[in-house]
Design a protein around this nucleic acid. Structure first.
Lengths: 376, 376
DNA sequence: AACATTGGTGAATCACTAT
DNA sequence: GATAGTGATTCACCAATGT
């Protein structure tokens, strides 16, 4: 019997002062302008899929309106990069302002732009937690045979600052990946088939992202009820997945066509019910049990003997829940670390007791039994 | 039969004025100084494995309390991003000067530094051709369960300029990859076992790269007789592979110990061993599918019901790919074994879902469908 | 000889709470 | 803010030893 059964339901979040946020809406304007209309520290996650190419076509902010003669290729390139960098730094700064202190940022890009974005992320004060590789199971081939098949895109996951206590649902990710830690390389098909949104028979958006990608991101790094903002909303993949997973969302998008498609799509995306939303929890969210409680409750009698797995050490349980091993005494953890000369020790798994059948079992088993018996 | 045999003989090169180059030698000095001693446009490829600027905190302990041997060498320490950027731009500029017009650059890094390096590569006038993901088959886990397992590093491949007629041995790569185009994600084990160089019983260099990685790079982007320069030579992986493949090399390295180890190693010039060849020839990973992927991909919706063949038990699919059957929850395998009180259970064949025609089908059918749809 | 068990390790930005 | 206490946390591969 595992630990899972003991997990309490998600604690109810204290009424968030978010009543004035434009939740679950598309702000039909430039993303920087849109973010400026929001208060500081109100967003749990920003997911951004910014323009990749550097052919800006007047779309983006140009710090000064000077026109550069495209005589020198290198200079022209530099100007283009500088313009893109300025735009990137501007939206990243706004995004960081509206992020809560423990909020996090996801950005996706390809080799055309991701290095510039990543540098700007670091310079803006974010703290990179991982870079993630989206491996496409069905990428477009390199028709000319001149390069390697460009079969992946890169995502950056960063917290607002180095000290942030960001959300990472470790256990849910491990469960999702067949009880192995989720790695930084994800194999996910590109968006096609029924999922690919069409408008007048052609694809509605050139770079629609697969829902599976957003699903994993939101499941990993947000909690139900969190607010996710997407500055480049497009056809609303972020909104659709957020709604399904019981997260609130805010989108920024200037193109009317995209907004229409996104609104239809999200309306059709049904939220999951609460039981389906539940994910595997880490044992640390289970109520704590002090070793002394087991003694009080009679699961172990004062005077009982505890052993390490190899029976090299023997300790005696005392009435107050401390244990003594030779001259060393104290908590199960402290004695364990002292006699091993280790910096730390989890006494629950280090110490064993002799069960009625003579087998040695970790005292953590007793804790589980106690939890089962005392859970309301 | 390896791939080597398929390589065409070197096309006759126009009399190369390279008689005065320090071929197949280690220049025992700072790499910028070393490159300055070389003439313009004399190198076919630069492969660089620069310091990553890891910025590690305190010690990291494994679950068994042993200490992780961190990279704490002085050569990896930089005060600020600005210092690191200046260093990066300086060596990239020298490297570009000594590259032939059709030469190309490879750089490897992790999320700590690769974004800054990539930005500098673009700003220096190089033209990025691909970014390549080295997926590690055996990375170090994330011991604390705080992030995704950092399971890859990133390489950038760039030509000297946009107009360069760079070398890409498309046919050799396709042959190496079972007659499929070589993709931008490469699965290669980290360097260990016999290949890992030791000095006094401990690793000679903290970040020795696997020969398989260099093998693929040199095979793809150089011709026999080409000159490869490595500004951060370390223990000479680049030199060893270059020699085996009939390429000339030049290394830059300041540390005497690394130079000694590298010289011995290259002199020994071991032929590729069988295991290394195998890793290079069969880069495809086993098509393993986690149950959670089916949920992410929409093959099963959270909230869907699963049944055993006799419909005695019913379980609900949850968002993270766990299932819940009454009070029991966990993976499809664990829940199956628990409710049957069996030591183990193959969830794929035990659990069934109701197909659109009402028939009960094992979820393994979904896995097969998914594999067919996503097989790379 | 063949197989099972144990121990070691790899470019890592690796905890949280109460006092 | 610093310190101390509690206790959560690992995958693949290789080498050496044990059965």
């Amino acid at each position: 019997m595992g630990v899972i059964e003991k997990i309490r339901p998600a604690t109810v979040k204290t009424a968030a002062p978010q009543a004035d946020l434009p939740l679950n809406q598309i702000l039909k304007m430039d993303c920087i302008e849109a973010m400026r209309s929001l208060p500081d520290a109100c967003i749990d996650m920003v997911f951004a899929d910014p323009p990749y190419n550097l052919q800006l076509g007047g779309d983006l902010l140009r710090p000064d309106n000077s026109k550069v003669d495209a005589v020198d290729d290198d200079w022209d390139k530099f100007d283009t990069f500088a313009t893109y960098d300025a735009f990137t730094r501007a939206w990243l700064a706004e995004a960081r302002r509206i992020l809560k202190p423990n909020g996090s940022l996801w950005v996706i890009g390809s080799y055309h732009n991701i290095f510039r974005v990543g540098t700007a992320v670091q310079d803006a004060g974010y703290w990179i937690l991982n870079d993630i590789v989206w491996r496409k199971s069905n990428p477009m081939p390199n028709f000319k045979g001149t390069r390697f098949t460009n079969a992946h895109e890169t995502l950056i996951w960063a917290s607002k600052s180095e000290k942030s206590k960001y959300t990472f649902n470790y256990r849910a990710m491990k469960t999702l990946n067949d009880e192995l830690q989720m790695r930084s390389d994800w194999l996910i098909p590109i968006c096609g088939g029924q999922e690919r949104l069409k408008r007048n028979g052609t694809k509605a958006h050139p770079t629609q992202k697969p829902e599976a990608l957003l699903y994993r991101i939101l499941l990993a790094c947000t909690k139900p009820g969190d607010v996710v903002l997407d500055p480049f909303f497009g056809t609303g993949t972020t909104g659709a997945v957020a709604r399904r997973l019981g997260r609130d969302w805010i989108g920024c998008e200037r193109e009317d066509v995209y907004c229409e498609v996104a609104e239809e799509r999200i309306a059709a995306a049904l939220p999951l019910d609460e039981s389906a939303l539940k994910t595997m929890q880490s044992p640390k969210s289970a109520p704590k049990v002090a070793f002394g409680q087991l003694v009080e409750a009679g699961y172990l009698t004062p005077g009982a003997k505890l052993f390490d797995r190899k029976r090299q050490f023997e300790a005696v349980v005392r009435a107050d829940g401390s244990i003594a091993c030779g001259a060393v005494d104290g908590s199960i953890h402290k004695v364990g670390s002292t006699i091993q000369n280790a910096p730390s020790c989890n006494g629950w798994t280090y110490w064993h007791f002799a069960a009625s059948d003579g087998a040695m079992k970790p005292i953590d088993d007793l804790r589980q039994t106690y939890l089962l018996a005392t859970e309301p």
